[in-house]
Simulated assay, not measured.
Amino acid sequence: MSQMLHEIMLQRKQLQRWVKLGPWYAMFPLEFAQASIEQHTKPGQAVLDPFMGRGTTLAAAKMLERHAAGVEINPVAWVYAKVKTEPCDKLLLLERLEEVNRLSKGTKLQQMPEFYKWCFCDEVLRFLLIARSELKWKDDHVDRTLMAIILVDLHGNVEDSLSNQMRQTKSMAPAYSINWWKAKDMHPAEKDAYAILRRKIEWRYKHGLFSNKSKIMALNGDSTSILKETAEIGPFHLLLTSPPYYGIINYNYDQWLRRWMLGGPELPKYSAGKYQDRYDNKIQYQELLSKVFGESAKLMHERAHVVVRTDARVFTLESTIKALEEAFPGKSIKKVKRPVLGKTQTRLYGDQSKKPGEVDLILKPKPRQRTSQVKSRFE
């Protein structure tokens, strides 16, 4: 095997361990992101994703040696995106894990809602409470990486996560969970949080870290107000994104337990502020798309392409097309229908009813009109 081929295979292994970091419902397909970036940009150019979710667009751009910037309003997804594109050194991470574990020993458990006693054994809960209070995930590179590792398996299969039996992609309602556990007489098993997380870290870092000269910026906040901060990465040659679909998923409620881990309330709340619920207000939804695509247009190269994956349902599709046409009047638009093949934003967890699928909206610069500089010899 040639040295170059060996390096390529190693890079792929390194990337796969990090690119898919973070359970997240309605995940942007990596293959689609890669194909779009390769088709519409060149190495060294920049990609923008104003609804970046867990950062698949940014990770794909880095893999392909493009620069990229994105914004995400949900802090859980932002932690995933930030860490998968910029994980810390393994030894520093293990040292921090040991420190948090040491601090958790002998910690007195506080009074908490009944849910937590059914979800986690005492040792795990002590660890989580210390990690929740000690890790400065917003600002510290190492702490953020450890928090991401914790969030991934905060809940899921009882044999492979920190919790009692739960779904991994979605935090179920406390009352529902308690009733389910009680009905099955399923108390939380005794677990060692340190041992579980140490094993997860060893797996994640098995092939090392991938790095190149790509500049990546991942921001946590509202794209309608902070998108302009990504300008230092641009001008962008590709806008690649998938906005939230109207009335489908509440990322705040569905990720409430992970948001608690990041300092949020102990029990779920429907909304954490504007644009952080189910997007079921038509006026606000249209306003969101218009503002974000309007701000994005200011950051794009004049010959940039735009690729937006959206819902095939009439209101979401028409609202998205209208916002894009207003923001990019100089571009032609093409619609490509995508059948439902897996867990998309139109296929809720457990909902097997027929779905209308998704649509890719592809905007390209209109051909430049050329004016002949040579007069006809017959004039």
Rank of each mutant, 00 (worst) to 15 (best):
S2R: 13
H6P: 01
H6V: 08
E7W: 01
Q14M: 14
Q16G: 01
R17A: 06
V19F: 02
G22H: 02
I37E: 08
H40L: 12
A46W: 09
L48H: 08
P50G: 09
G53M: 07
R54E: 05
G55Q: 02
M63H: 03
R66F: 02
I73P: 05
N74T: 07
V76F: 06
A77K: 05
V79R: 13
Y80I: 06
A81H: 10
A81E: 07
L91A: 12
L93A: 00
L94W: 00
L94E: 10
E98S: 14
E99D: 10
V100N: 02
K105L: 11
G106N: 10
T107C: 08
M112G: 01
M112C: 05
F115K: 09
K117F: 15
C121I: 00
C121V: 03
V124S: 01
F127R: 09
R132G: 07
L135S: 03
L135V: 01
K136L: 10
W137F: 07
W137N: 08
D140Y: 01
R144N: 07
L146V: 04
M147P: 08
M147G: 04
A148C: 11
V152Q: 08
L154V: 00
H155C: 04
D160S: 12
D160K: 15
L162C: 02
M166R: 13
K170P: 02
K170G: 01
A173P: 07
P174L: 10
A175Y: 11
S177I: 03
W180Q: 13
W180C: 07
W181R: 03
H187T: 14
H187K: 15
H187W: 15
K191N: 04
A193Q: 03
A193P: 10
I196C: 04
R199G: 15
I201D: 04
G208D: 03
S214H: 01
I216K: 06
M217N: 05
M217Q: 14
M217F: 10
S223T: 12
E229F: 03
E229I: 03
A231T: 05
G234I: 02
P235M: 10
P235G: 09
L239D: 11
L239R: 10
G247I: 06
I249N: 12
W260E: 09
L262Q: 12
P265Q: 12
E266Q: 15
P268V: 05
K269G: 10
K274V: 13
Q276S: 14
D277R: 11
Q286N: 13
E287W: 14
F293R: 10
S296F: 08
A297K: 01
E302H: 14
H305Y: 15
H305Q: 12
V308M: 09
T310G: 06
D311N: 15
A312T: 05
F315G: 04
F315M: 15
L317I: 05
L317Q: 12
E318M: 10
S319P: 02
S319M: 09
S319R: 09
T320Y: 09
T320A: 11
T320H: 10
I321C: 07
E326L: 13
E326G: 03
P329C: 08
I333G: 13
V336M: 12
V340Q: 14
K343W: 03
K343C: 00
T344K: 04
T344R: 05
T346N: 14
T346A: 09
R347L: 02
R347S: 03
Q352C: 08
S353C: 05
P356R: 14
K366C: 07
Q369S: 14
R370N: 02
T371E: 13
Q373A: 11
V374S: 11
S376F: 06
S376E: 11
